[in-house]
Amino acid sequence: MKTSLKWAMMLLIAVALAACSSKSDDKNATSVVGGGATGAGVGTNPDFDDSMDARMAKILGIEKNTIYFDFDRDTIKPEYMSILQANADYLKKHPNARILIAGNADPRGSREYNIGLGQRRADVVRQRLVTMGVNANQMRTVSYGSEKPAVSGNDDFAYSQDRRDDITYDNAG
């Protein structure tokens, strides 16, 4: 709540600044913009912010709640099993905890096809956590495809950072 208030303040200031410098033809934009407030209608997710991610990583005893994948693969490499085990242990001990597993692809190729690749990566981790004994109801998955690259750049290192699952806690339980 505090964070979002701070955000709103920062944005207000930014809006004020932008309004000062904007030109007269900006007025046209108002008639076109109408989106914003209609039609959303799915649930009440708390905001995941960095501090929540950082706090959970600390509790889980891991550096970062992220699992990386090889090119064109959705197999979980052995070095990431400890991260999954830490999440599984926590989720089993805290039945009210809820996570979102977000699968991602590197930015090459078709965006919608990459959504498919990211979903495979998200679901393979979800399935592994189920076999580790986590209740399926504690987990949601989503694919962001190549819409949320971890780093910008078009080299193999950047791509290796982009091909990942981010696990975030909606609710620490």
Partner: peptide, 24 residues
């Protein structure tokens, strides 16, 4: 509700930013 008010702010901000930036 809180989410929407922030969204509207962002919309306003984007309107100002984009029309001046893209003119070039």
């Amino acid at each position: 509700m809180k989410k929407y008010s922030i969204w509207i702010l962002i919309t306003t901000l984007m309107m100002c930013l984009s029309s001046s930036a893209l003119a070039a």
